[in-house]
Amino acid sequence: MNSIIGVILLFIGLLFNLFGCIGLIRFPDVYNRLQAGTKCVTLGTSSMLLGMLFFFGFSEAGIKAVITIPLLFLSASVAAHALIRGSYIFGVKIGDQPIKDDYKEQVETDEKNEVK
């Protein structure tokens, strides 16, 4: 019974990973790719680790799998944040015509201060 639930969780994880990877291929620019990749792949991998808990029960490997989940969430969100900030300062444009761009002024004033 436990292993059936485990396999179902593994399949759900695989499905989310698939959506994330298709998004990585299909979306037009780096920001949207990061949106698809980070969210879907993180939740998919967490679902796989939870499936591992059902296979091993509350033994050594099961508990290690559970403490990997918060670690994964924190590290993935901080990495996404660093990458998106880096690529903005690097100079990648947000789509063809961004609806709203509040961050631009901030970056430009920062650059002026640096030159001074």
């Binding site: 990585l24 980070t38 796989m48 296979f55 799998a65 880096g86």
Partner: peptide, 23 residues
């Protein structure tokens, strides 16, 4: 930056491979 996003996602996928291999 596109390549770096690829590397980042690749790293997370490997953790999933590790979990399945452990099972």
């Amino acid at each position: 930056p596109d390549r770096m996003v690829g590397i980042d996602i690749f790293g997370i996928l490997v953790v999933g491979i590790c979990a399945v291999l452990a099972i």
